[in-house]
């Protein structure tokens, strides 16, 4: 019996009729899980396999390919800091340093209060407002130390 996706059945079926093949709902359903749970557990993968009509191995294959799918719990506000060239030459690493020294947010770690986690990612398409980071679903560009303080202060 599904527990994670138990209230989402109607939503999933409405989605499935929009695609010529049921398999195409793989990514949308995985997003549903991640938005609800914050990450994608093994149990979630098993449920997704049932819903999509495939095996757990195939779901894991997909989850492990796409870097945005989290396979372990993240903080309530997950920070994705771009460190590709355009952001790197505009101070992305100073942002990382600031997050670490001022706010105690370190790469690949969840803060002890569970509030933040940080990941360095490749280009997020915000090159003209570098350095940039995603906090949860919100993009922030032209980052400055004061700006970062204000952004993080809004995250409960």
């Amino acid at each position: 019996m599904p527990t994670i996706l138990k209230d989402r059945t109607d939503e999933i079926e409405r989605l499935a009729v929009r695609y010529p093949s049921r398999r195409s709902i793989m990514l949308p359903v995985l997003w549903m899980v991640q938005q609800q749970e914050g990450w994608i557990s093994q149990q979630a993968m098993a449920e997704v396999a049932d819903v999509v009509g495939t095996t757990v191995a195939e779901v894991y294959e997909v989850v492990s390919f796409y870097t945005m799918f989290q396979q372990r719990p993240v903080g309530r506000h997950h920070i994705a800091l771009c460190d590709t060239l355009a952001c790197a030459i505009c101070g992305a690493m100073e942002v990382a340093e600031y997050l670490k020294t001022k706010h105690g947010i370190e790469k690949k770690k969840v803060t002890p209060d569970g509030r933040f986690s940080l990941e360095f990612v490749e280009c997020i398409g915000a090159c003209s407002i570098a350095p940039a980071m995603l906090v949860g679903e919100t993009l922030h560009g032209n980052l400055t130390p004061d700006g970062i303080d204000a952004i993080l202060a809004q995250c409960p």
Partner: peptide
């Protein structure tokens, strides 16, 4: 004309 918005998940 049916149009579906589909999201990727972080793969260049």
């Amino acid at each position: 004309v049916d149009l579906v918005v589909h999201r990727g998940a972080g793969a260049y």
